[in-house]
């Protein structure tokens, strides 16, 4: 079995609302439990797809792993070492190994810098290239990797289409030859014909450099396509995780089932999308005890309102957090 590149244990991130002194004295603070005790691992060279709806905590998870925000509690182990114990200097060095690609390439690229500036900056920060020629050579190499020509090097981001910009953002992610790349909805701002190009690019690069991906997305078809294993999040919790084929052909958690039934498939012969849950997504602000899906779930029993279900193994690599299986 291959080594776990990343291991996340009991990761928690709580945000405090109304955290000012007056509210605290009056006891009016609220806690947003954005990520509330999640566990998962990613093996070397595989792709873990993290899927869920808006506000479920999937982006927060991605940011926690890079320590762009600090967790409230938990462990994040890269090659078995806890990132949270690292000194700022060590953390900066480690970031070379863990890179992020963001959703919106219109926001993630500085409009006043040329592509040369954008792609050579990481090389400067990590002192991987010193002379102009070295940098230039490496940047051209990166552009070539993501399918852009050398004529693009001195242009500005506004001269590129959305798909091309996302290629540049990916090139920046690869500049430091990381092991782990976290894609936070990297294709959701793109049109479908371009989205397919970028998904293929992610695949090609993974093969070429044996990259490990944490791929965060809300689109189930995208997750189905890119992932080896999938983790489904709902309001700060992982409710089900398993191999991609199992999750999509034999989902066990009522939320996973509901998500899949709600996807309109591009085939009029398939059943129409429908919602098998009641009501709307629960809020992560001071959630009630018990299962987060309680109140919406067709299977709910009295225990669901009292005890939070733990993620338990039901088959090899397949874990589900539900009382009523």
């Amino acid at each position: 079995m291959t080594e776990n590149l990343l291991e996340v244990k009991d990761l928690v991130k709580h945000f405090t609302l109304n955290g000012d002194l007056v509210s605290r004295i009056a006891g009016k603070t609220q806690t947003v439990k954005a990520v509330d005790g999640i566990n998962f691992h990613i093996r070397q060279g595989e792709t873990l797809g993290l899927v869920g709806e808006s506000g479920c905590g999937k982006s927060t998870t991605g940011r926690l792993i890079t320590r762009l925000i600090e967790p409230t509690a938990g462990e994040i182990k890269l090659h078995g070492e806890d990132l949270l114990s690292f000194s700022p200097k060590r953390m900066r060095e480690t970031r070379r190994n863990v890179q992020l690609v963001f959703q919106d390439p219109y926001a993630s690229l500085n409009p006043r810098k040329t592509i040369m500036d954008i792609l050579s900056r990481p090389l400067e920060v990590h002192k991987l290239a010193t002379t102009w020629h070295e940098k230039r050579e490496r940047v051209l190499e990166l552009l070539n990797l993501v399918g852009l020509g050398s004529e693009h090097i001195d242009r500005y981001p506004h001269e590129f289409s959305g798909g091309q910009r996302q290629r540049i953002a990916i090139a920046r992610g690869l500049a430091l030859t990381p092991e782990l790349v976290i894609g936070d909805e990297p294709v959701s701002a793109l049109d479908v014909s371009i989205q397919a190009q970028i998904l293929n690019l992610f695949r090609e690069l993974q093969e070429k450099f044996s990259l490990t991906y944490l791929f965060i997305a809300h689109d189930l078809a995208v997750i189905r396509h890119i992932s080896d294993r999938v983790a489904v999040m709902y309001v700060g919790k992982i409710v089900e995780t398993g191999p991609v084929a199992t999750i999509f052909s034999d989902p066990l958690h009522p939320y996973t089932k509901a998500l899949l039934a709600a996807v309109p498939e591009a085939d009029p012969k398939k059943p129409p999308p429908r919602l098998t849950l009641e009501g709307e997504v629960a809020t992560p602000i001071d959630p009630p005890p018990g299962c987060r899906l309680n109140g919406r779930c067709p299977l709910a029993t009295s225990i669901c309102g009292e005890v939070e279900p733990a993620l338990v193994s039901v088959a090899t690599n397949h874990e589900v957090a539900c009382h009523n299986l």
Binding site: S161, D191, A196, L199, A221, V222, H225, A266
Partner: peptide, 19 residues
Amino acid sequence: SIPRLDVQEKFLTPIDGTV
């Protein structure tokens, strides 16, 4: 170019180029 829910293909067939 749409990824499918029922089968997993290694590569998609995108439309080359841009609009």
